[in-house]
Design a protein around this nucleic acid. Sequence first.
DNA 1: CCTAGAATATCACTGTAACT
DNA 2: AGTTACAGTGATATTCTAGG
Length: 206
Amino acid sequence: GFIKELPDLFKLSRFKDEIENMEGFGEKSYVNLIEACENARTTTLARFLYALGIAGVGSANAKILARFFDEDYEKIKGAGFDEISEAEGFGGVLAMAVSSYFSDEKKLKEADGLYKELNIQAPVQNTEKSENISGKTFVITGSVYHFSNRSELKEYIEERGGKVSGSVSAKTDYLINNDVTSTSGKNKKAKELGVKIISEEDFLNL
DNA sequence: CCTAGAATATCACTGTAACT
DNA sequence: AGTTACAGTGATATTCTAGG
């Protein structure tokens, strides 16, 4: 009962004592919970859109939407079916999902309430433009060593104008893989299609 | 205060279904 | 044909509470 609508996620400290006394909880879990919620306040428009849970709008499509509408939440809210269809990769199904979400009174109210609690930041862009990375598509497989996890490497690439996708295709420029002997589906496909397979070191040298 | 055992969270990775 | 979202799996890491 602590969370009745989305914005309540950011008001949990009102229930400090109750939360700490719940089974399986203690002071530490309470503090972690509050810290996690506070960290989540600072986010990008794309992450916010992703979080709304609109069918078909995951992390990748949310980024496209945010960019297409100039990182402006008001523009997205006001956009109709036709306008949304013009965004790259958005056809009838996705445009309908998005436009009907924002024309639903209840959902709109919830989204607005959540938006008010947030501290939206502009996405980090092209901190260090790199010609070898910008405009290229990468796929990462296996573990990484120079970054704490794959998401960090993904962010690193995207900040420099590159793209990271989940599956190898003819449009993929590089497959990043430290395990040369790997026989994963991604490696096989990369070999089939003649996609360059590089190690993390090779990537950093780019 | 410290430790052990248990529970839970996180991570990398797959496969499937559905969309453009 | 190419992409993406999403659910599920097994392994590993983290972190809790209870009890000495």
